[in-house]
Amino acid sequence: MFSRVNEFWAESARPGWKLTVAGTSGRIDADSRQRSIAALASLSETELVDACLAGRREAFDVIVERHRRSVYQLCYRFVGNHEDASDLSQDVFVRAYRGLKNFKRQSSIGTWLYRIGVNVCLNRVTAKTPLLEPIEPERHPDEGAADPMQSLVQSEQAARVRAAIRRLPRKQRTTLILRVYHELPHEEIARILGSSVGAVKANFFHALGNLKRLLQSEEC
């Protein structure tokens, strides 16, 4: 594992470094960073973590590239707007980089990032009272929809569901988001939340029940 990492280590280094390999030296430019990232892209997640811990900064870029979409979507589910989701995603990756040496490898790096993401999002949501999401269907118009009225109704309904989800208790909300939108198995959610599968299923059941009541109360 380390030998593969070392091969890549020899191929590239941080931009601006003077690299000497087998008697040759040259200045590493931005292109070599891209080449390095492309070369690292074939590594497994464990190998990427090893490379990061060995000082390969670009290996973390590859981890970010692989998981940025799921992390952003998780954050968006919690906060409901692009700006905060973007800031939180950045925060998740920075925390992951700082804590990489503590990554136990008992779970996938994706699960580990989800765990960091959940903590970051819940802390942010607690610190900052979530605003009720304004219904602005024109911001995300569904241009492909045949019926604009149907599209508008669907957007309003989605906004209502998002607002109701945000009113759920923390664990129920987290379980619902991870199960429904990220389609994680109950076992993985249990690992992320540090609870049992039975507790996760109970949380999910209560989350659905409460969501039903919240939506019904809004309709009345």
Binding site: R68, H82, S86, Q90, F93, L176, Y181
Partner: peptide
């Protein structure tokens, strides 16, 4: 559950992903 499933995350601009990587 069906109602919850209709909620989607709006897809950000394609440029956003590289921007996010650069920020990180």
């Amino acid at each position: 559950l069906l109602q919850a499933n209709i909620v989607e995350v709006p897809e950000p601009s394609p440029l956003f992903w590289n921007h996010l990587s650069a920020r990180v």
